[in-house]
Every structure is written in structure tokens, then in C-alpha cells.
Amino acid sequence: MSVLVSSIINGDNIEFACEPDETLLDALRDRVGMTGVKEGCGTGDCGACSITLDGALVCSCLVLGAEAEGRSIETVEGMSDGNVLHPLQQKFLEHAALQCGICTPGFLIAAKSLLEKNNDPTEEEVRYALAGNLCRCTGYDKIVRAVLDAAKQMRKA
């Protein structure tokens, strides 16, 4: 038996039906069509499926779709403001912080969540805040630089 879930996804009221044991990751991808949320492991180890749920950073593969009832979800699809990219998105592009890009949505969400709490992180703080996200292509160097640069720009704004 499916359950009907209503939540706010990237600011919009969305209703979807999912199985009671279906992960929020699967529900977002297969029911809502938000394929910007990626699956790298399904076990909470890679962070590719990162979203925020009522402002808290979570792995959507570790949350049930049904748990999203009445809650607010943010995914990479909701990051830019109309056609203006979020500074993190912009800086990821400028610094070439992505190669294949499969990890990018997760990194962007995790980095945004960090900068909301700490707008002036050190390199080490960035590294620890992003330690739940795996990237196999970049060696993280350019990702860390992009996040630090975005933080700087956001402080100025």
C-alpha cells in the first residue's frame, strides 16, 4: 500500500505517493523526478544523495519517503535563484571543482549547509564539514578552494 506524502520541495508544495519502506532518495528520483539527487551507495557512505530536511543536512538514502510528510526539502535543483546561480555553483564552475560531476549536487548541498552555519570557515573546517561526501575525481583540492572562495564572496555580499 502506498502512502501519500505532502512536503515542500524547493519551496513548492509537492505531493507524492510512495511505498512505506521506500527511501526518500528513491521517492525524490522516481516519483518526483528530481534526478539531481544522486545515488552512489544507498548506505549513507558517499553523500551523493545529500539534501536538507527542515534545514538539516541528511543523506536522503537513509530517510524514508514517508518521513518527509509536512517537512521542507531542499535539493540542488532549488539552489539557484531563478537564472542566477548560487555563489557556490558559480565558484564550483570557476574553480573546476567538478570533473565527472556526479558528486557535485551532494557537495553543493553540504557546502551550503556549512556556510549557513559558518560563513568564514577555515580550510580544515571545510574539509571536515565535507568529509561525508566522496569525490573520486578531483582529490578535493579544487572543491575546497571553491567553497572557501564562495564563502569569501558571500561575506562581501
Partner: peptide
């Protein structure tokens, strides 16, 4: 310069194997 496929990849639009 910035890569041509970049925007799709930072906005979640790029379509990978499972998408």
C-alpha cells in the same frame, strides 16, 4: 574558460546512467 557542460552539472540537470 568555464566548461560548456558545467551549468547542467551544478544544477542537477545533467543526466547520468541512472537518470
Amino acid at each position: 574558460p568555464m566548461r560548456p557542460d558545467g551549468i547542467d552539472k551544478v544544477t542537477g540537470r545533467a543526466r547520468y546512467g541512472a537518470d
